[in-house]
Amino acid sequence: MPIPDRDIVDVSFKRLDRTESLFVLNVFKGLGTTLRHAFQNVGRNGSNKDTLWVVQYPEQKRDDRPVEEGGQYRPTFRGVHRLNRDEDGRVRCVACFMCATACPANCIHIVAEASPWDDREKYPKQFDIDELRCIYCGMCEEACPCDAIELTPHYEVTGLSRQELIFDKTKLLEVYDQTVGEKPM
């Protein structure tokens, strides 16, 4: 059965006219576009705000820029984790395993133990986060019932080995001590 004409669409290209089929003028038209961009960018090392405005990373950072111009929005940025302390300087974590359960990357490992304090039953004897496995989704932060685990705006997590980047409880509390000034709990 032939396909009726109304079910057929013609996708032919536009026929080139005489000037277009000589190519030359259109080539120069195209060169105009590319060269315009080239002249806007030449010698500026990516600092032309109209075309490209590059963060030259180690020297410049996103933190230095206003948020409207592509800077980092620090209040909600999800960087390296920290374990918060309470007023007495003790770890706030009650080892409820909510974060470890919520974690989609399975990067949180907690070993719980009976708490030495009266106000809670358990506390984490061991609290490890594999910063290389972590996808920085922030689900642990949302799952935590007592605001013990939080993400900080720091994103430059570096180390010389994989082992070095598994942050234990001491390290995470250390991160808290360093960042509590700029991001209060």
Binding site: I3, D7, V9, D10, V11
Partner: peptide
């Protein structure tokens, strides 16, 4: 001379679009 030069054979660019949701119609 250009309009009288032989043109390349045109490909059949008629496409059946029966019931396609991509139909440009």
């Amino acid at each position: 001379v250009l309009p009288f030069m032989p043109r390349s054979a045109t490909a059949n660019r008629r496409i059946a679009i029966v019931g396609s949701r991509f139909s440009p119609l």
